[in-house]
């Protein structure tokens, strides 16, 4: 068993290298060069953190744009317990849930056409900060009416919040719901 000594010792040395030195070096550089990103991309208002630009929050009231349904428990958008619904496409629970959401959204948006799919499907993380531009424009009239604003003004605000693909190529166009709603409240 003369190989036992190298086996144990090399495991220890590699643990120090990859488990301590490497993450400490990454943390050191990250905190020095990208402090905002490395600490959760917090949105700070008046010296106080009011949320993270990367993590969605639950919105259900008429005065706000709604994000995607969230499957986290015990409450939606629980950022300490990320989770998807994991419901399969033929699962009756999925169909029932979507049916209920469709009814609720229809009632709040009379006269609108088919609902953009991301508004009635849960995200993979349960924390998706984004909705599609289609889903944001869908809600413009409701939010405008609840706030007594002109729909055109709200529409312009949404347009300002549409993020395109990276270099027009990578990813998908999207709207950050929390940032949009914080802007509405301003």
């Amino acid at each position: 068993m003369r190989e036992l000594r190298p086996a144990i010792l090399i495991f220890l040395v590699l643990t120090v290298l990859t488990g301590l030195i490497y993450p400490l070096v990454v943390t050191g550089i990250a905190q020095a060069v990208f402090p905002r990103q490395a600490n959760g991309s917090l949105i700070v208002k008046g010296g106080l953190a009011v949320g993270s630009a990367l993590i969605g929050q639950p919105f259900a009231g008429p005065r706000y744009f709604w994000g995607r349904p969230s499957a986290t428990s015990p409450f939606p958008y629980d950022a300490a317990n990320s989770s998807g619904s994991n419901l399969g496409p033929t699962n009756p629970d999925l169909i029932q849930r979507v049916k209920a959401d469709v009814g609720r959204i229809r009632a709040a948006h009379p006269g609108k056409g088919p609902i953009p799919v991301d508004l009635v499907t849960t995200s993979a993380s349960g924390l998706d900060p984004h909705i599609s531009p289609a889903a944001a424009f869908y809600q413009v009239e409701r939010v405008a009416a609840a706030r007594g604003l002109a729909p055109a003004a709200v529409c312009q605000l949404v347009e300002r919040h549409v993020e395109g693909r990276w270099l027009g190529l990578i990813g998908e166009p999207r709207v950050n719901v929390l940032e949009l709603n914080l802007d509405l409240d301003r």
Partner: peptide, 13 residues
Amino acid sequence: SQPGGNMEGKEVR
């Protein structure tokens, strides 16, 4: 203005 498709369990970005 939307990716569409089966978005259950997928992220918009």
